[in-house]
Write a protein that binds this DNA or RNA. Sequence first.
DNA 1: GTGTTTTCGGACTAAATAGTCCAAAATTAA
DNA 2: TTAATTTTGGACTATTTAGTCCGAAAACAC
Lengths: 200, 200
Amino acid sequence: MSKEQHPVGGSKTAAAPGPGRPRAFDEAEALEKALCVFWHKGYETASVDDLTKAMGLSRSSFYGAFGNKQDLFHQALSHYSRRALKTLRAVADAGGDDPVGAMMEALANPQGGRDGCMLINCLTELAPHDDEVAALGRQHLESIDEIIAKALEPSDPGRALDKARAYASLAIGTLALRKAGVPGERISQTLKQARSVISP
Amino acid sequence: MSKEQHPVGGSKTAAAPGPGRPRAFDEAEALEKALCVFWHKGYETASVDDLTKAMGLSRSSFYGAFGNKQDLFHQALSHYSRRALKTLRAVADAGGDDPVGAMMEALANPQGGRDGCMLINCLTELAPHDDEVAALGRQHLESIDEIIAKALEPSDPGRALDKARAYASLAIGTLALRKAGVPGERISQTLKQARSVISP
DNA sequence: GTGTTTTCGGACTAAATAGTCCAAAATTAA
DNA sequence: TTAATTTTGGACTATTTAGTCCGAAAACAC
């Protein structure tokens, strides 16, 4: 009488083998595929059919492993946030003489191409009606500020956080341009101009 | 044999009386109600039932007057854009000694409260899959830049547009904070800090 | 092997969705 | 009044939606 255990979210690493038939799919891979669908289509527009097809799962496996569409989405978004912040830190470390510029470029031109930043997309679509998404969004944005501030501290310890917030909002604001179809090249240019105009 | 004429979008002012029963509702008012629903719920989540209920129309009147859900949406969004730009110009004119600050404040704290700026919302939700929305978005964002640039020209004619773009992106970027539930007061504060840090 | 546990495929359900259709009522022009 | 034209209410349809259920197959422990 053991019902509805969908251990993907529960166990940090691969669960103990245990008895019974093992999963025929890689949960992390499936989550990644779902992430792509949500990223590209948004939450509402992504149907369970879209998701299962992209993930290569039957509905049974889907619901058995991830609970339901909303649970899966929260897992995917949380995963996205962690990975995006990790990437941002890596960009800062590899940014050479201008880590802040490199980070702004990374924020303004995310991997998703025309799809922009998944977290900002989902914040816009869902946050006013989904407290969990709103909370994750606040946390994510705050983390971005802190990562940028850390890079600014050596040169301007007093106002590092305020500056970081300004740079972050500036970069995130340009995501609207990307959504509107302005080519990435022109966005980078705009960003550089903005920065040169900002710290003269 | 005259079919499917839904003249709301066609005629600038009230249509000529003509023969037949006149509309029992005010088209502009109905559009305004629809606008509120789209603003609050987004395009996909707003059902035709939601819309007709808010507009006080039967389905016949709805489809007869506005074509279909997508047409209505485009009309509403276009109306929103015109009105928002008009408001922004008014804010600039009434901005006293700091029109740019007043405009940024208006952009960052739009009328929709927690719902943010409808145009940015819809750009985020739809632009990658709806060219008309993308085009309207580009146009709107460009107009914002120009309005701000006009206010900057007297003091810095050379780089007015570049500065304007930076300020606009900065203000628009803070909309993400609003979506995430950060209170408007703190956003205004952040915006002021950012500005002071930007032009020292 | 045997028994137990779990996954899997896919048919199924109930609800919501956008959009259509038609008869009845309302209005105007003559 | 009469004829023409339009709006209106609401029933209706076809499709899509998220989620459930069950028998069969697969893999483990022993």
